[in-house]
Design a protein around this nucleic acid. Structure first.
Lengths: 197, 197
DNA sequence: TCAAATTGTAGGTAGACACTTACGAAATAC
DNA sequence: GTATTTCGTAAGTGTCTACCTACAATTTGA
């Protein structure tokens, strides 16, 4: 009888390394040779785990969401003092969003978006982010009463836009840490519930 | 005596073609061979106009701002009915931002941002956009009186973030035309003057 | 122990790509 | 006319890169 395959386990172990390489180097510069080197295996081993480089990249895009979702889940369950979770998330992200650097994968992906698989992975990722944030916005708004404001869908996209720009600001050194935090925090709050304290 | 050099003129003529190629293909896939083909010249002619491919790309980034600025200048001078120019711009951009497709160059640039020249070109571009928008926000706010809201700097970055996300939405087919317009329009208005009509 | 499958190692290949060189043709100022 | 420079064409070069093949070593169940 055959030796049992460790493929799934190996894939799971190597994905974080692969994803980080794509984040640091972008799609083209993360050559398969470089990926293998960082994983401390030979190239053809990567090709036993994924059919080609594109698949490695798509898996990395999925990984970006998984990681963020994990962080959030953890944060929300952490201490359930009944502080509004949307506010807690907003504050946390204003301070820490993009710290991992993994979001650079998104930039890399956007310039490869004419590849259908990559495009689809990005769509899925943004949709999942949007669903999550939209839910948070809705829950938050139930706890207060105010008049008209942009609907939840619009607000959620807007907040995603702020996160994106916050990352660009970090990437290019356009905004100081304080500036970024203020931007994300103030504008995010405004989109969240119309308050502008 | 020598034949007079047409270099500057040629550069100006070819830049739009080069920029469009980068926008459509991204940095790596816009090979020098492809650029030359689209320009209907041989590769070495491009190398007489720019020292290397990176320089062609940097010029294209600058071109993105020039083009946008031209459109805006035109729009603002067009009919000076004293409608608030910030509002006019916002409406116009909500409907048309990203239509040219040139902004895809920014995505390409972001995944090459570890090259100092490219990074610097992007910084400059974003700074110029920010300065312009910040000015518009400030002018708009002089025409009304309301209470506290995010300061002009924050609002301007926020609006840039919305534009960016609007582009991503278009790129990935995440948002319908109407959805994008609503998102940019509603959230933009909120950031502009706190109104949420 | 041994057949069957999975691992790891080494090397290679075909194509793509940024950039260069060489050279003849055309245009200008004198 | 002619010296001087720009312009256009053609071909090449060294390097990099995604992906593959061949094979030996290792691990399992029976």
């Amino acid at each position: 009888m055959p030796r049992p395959s460790q493929t799934d386990k190996k894939r799971k172990n190597l994905l974080p390394i692969v994803a980080r390489a794509f984040a640091e180097l972008g799609y083209r510069r993360a050559t398969t040779a470089e990926l293998a080197k960082r994983c401390k295996v030979r190239e053809n081993i990567l090709y036993r785990l994924w059919p080609n480089k594109k698949a490695m990249f798509v898996a990395s895009i999925d990984y970006v969401y998984e990681q963020a979702a994990n962080t959030w889940r953890e944060m929300l369950s952490e201490k359930n003092d009944n502080a509004d979770s949307a506010m807690r998330l907003l504050k946390h992200e204003a301070a820490h969003y993009g710290e991992s650097g993994l979001q650079r994968i998104i930039f890399a992906g956007l310039s490869e978006a004419d590849e259908p698989e990559i495009r689809e992975a990005l769509r899925k990722m943004y949709s999942r982010f949007h669903r999550f944030i939209r839910g948070q916005v809705a829950a938050h708004r139930k706890t207060i009463e105010t008049s008209v404001r942009p609907d939840e869908t619009v607000s959620a996209w807007g907040i995603i836009g702020l996160g994106n720009l916050s990352n660009i600001g970090r990437e290019l050194g356009l905004l100081s840490d304080r500036g970024r935090k203020k931007m994300f925090g103030d504008a995010g709050r405004l989109l969240l519930d119309g308050q502008s304290e």
